[in-house]
Design a protein around this nucleic acid. Structure first.
Lengths: 99, 99
DNA sequence: AAAAAGCACTTTGTAATACAAAGTATGTGA
DNA sequence: TCACATACTTTGTATTACAAAGTGCTTTTT
């Protein structure tokens, strides 16, 4: 028998970071506020998790405007896609064993 | 768009507890030592995670012997199967979005 | 023009969590 | 008897997560 949790990325152990990444896999970009509402987190908490993801080069930030209001959006990077995809593969392999 | 991380069980956010559960989904029972080697954790750390799972009634403990040596084994409970299965379903739903 | 509000943070403080290492109880093999 | 194994428990520390409050900038409201 093999260790079922090898290949899981520690960054994605956290559910909020997991949520951010899975949203960004299917949305080209999403705003700070939309993310906040979608994941139901406080802004400070979301901000720190976004910093973690950015420090790992998994996401990138775009500061822009909608009309005259500031609007920061986030998108996934190549590395982010790769890392998340590998994490999901590891999850799939784990699940394969149990289902 | 819906929150992709609803339905995830917080107990299974931790990778070691996730590993224990996924092992117990496919093995009727496993010994403390085998788990320890499989998941590559220290005994103290494993013990605390096993306590957490037991407190949540997700696993149960059997103290026995192999020959004359003590041998503690763990198995999954009905509730444990249900909770883990729901967690995996939530993961699958999340993955469905991204794959 | 002043006040209030929105956005996207940053800072601060605290609570929870994770973990290694050391200690313990019980029993075994040499 | 002495060292070793099992399965913990205890202790201490480091890391993490989080809410709440504060900040700087801009816009909208009055």
């Amino acid at each position: 028998m093999k260790n079922p949790i090898t290949g899981l990325n520690k960054i994605f152990d956290n559910r909020i970071r997991l949520g951010v990444m899975s949203v960004l896999m299917v949305n080209e970009e999403i705003s700070f506020n939309d993310l906040k509402q979608l994941l139901e987190v406080t802004d400070g908490n979301l901000a720190t998790h976004l910093v973690t993801l950015e420090e790992n080069a998994f996401i990138k930030v775009h500061k822009g405007f909608v009309g005259r209001k500031t609007n920061t959006t986030y998108s996934i990077t190549r590395q982010g896609e790769k890392a998340f995809s590998e994490h999901v593969t590891a999850l799939e392999n784990m699940i394969k064993g149990v289902r």
